Simulated scan of single mutants.
Amino acid sequence: MEFLSIPLAEWVGYMASVVLLISFSMKSMTKLRIINSIGAILFVAYGILLATSWPIIITNTAILGINIYYLTKK
């Protein structure tokens, strides 16, 4: 599937990168972790769409887990 001649996987990767960059502009650590978690989820989806890129999936699953840990710890 393509949109504007760009494959879906690339769109998901671009969205994940933008969300990740936005997360680092947050002043609140809670907002940073929530938005960063959304980016991590998008990166996991991107890793799956790349015919299962395990380094991307494992790293972002770990980041998501760390974010969830600190969000629920409060």
Rank of each mutant, 00 (worst) to 15 (best):
L20I: 11
I22R: 13
A62D: 06
I58S: 03
G13V: 01
S25N: 09
V19D: 13
P55V: 03
S28T: 04
G39T: 05
F43A: 09
A16R: 02
M29P: 11
S5I: 03
P55A: 12
N67M: 05
L4A: 05
S17G: 14
M29N: 15
M29E: 13
Y70L: 04
S37M: 09
T59Y: 10
P55W: 00
G47T: 03
A16W: 06
I34A: 01
S23A: 15
T52D: 04
A51M: 10
K31G: 15
V12T: 04
L20K: 13
S5G: 05
N60K: 00
L49G: 01
G39H: 12
L8G: 10
F3K: 08
L20G: 12
E2S: 13
N36W: 03
M26L: 12
Y69I: 09
L64S: 02
F3Q: 07
R33T: 02
T30R: 15
V18S: 12
S5L: 02
L8K: 02
E10F: 02
L64V: 01
I66P: 01
T52F: 15
M1I: 09
S25G: 15
Y46E: 09
A51G: 15
I63E: 07
T30Q: 11
K74Q: 10
A40W: 01
K27M: 08
K31V: 06
S17M: 14
V44H: 13
M1F: 15
S17R: 11
K73S: 02
N67Q: 03
S53T: 07
I63G: 00
A51R: 11
P55S: 08
L49T: 07
I22P: 04
S5F: 08
I41D: 01
S23E: 12
E10R: 00
M29D: 14
I68K: 06
S53C: 15
I63P: 04
G39N: 08
F43I: 04
K31E: 08
A9C: 07
E2C: 14
A45F: 03
A16K: 05
I6C: 00
V44P: 05
I66N: 10
I22Q: 07
S37L: 05
L50R: 12
A40F: 00
L64E: 07
L64Q: 04
M1G: 15
G39F: 03
T61R: 04
P7H: 10
F24A: 09
F24V: 08
L8R: 05
I57S: 08
S5M: 07
T59W: 00
S53L: 14
G13Q: 04
F24L: 02
V19S: 12
E2K: 15
V18P: 08
A9P: 02
A45Q: 00
E2Y: 14
V19W: 07
S5K: 11
M26F: 07
S28C: 15
P55R: 08
L4E: 06
I35F: 09
T59D: 02
F3R: 07
T30A: 14
A16T: 04
K27R: 15
R33H: 00
N67E: 05
G39L: 09
L49H: 05
A16S: 11
S25I: 06
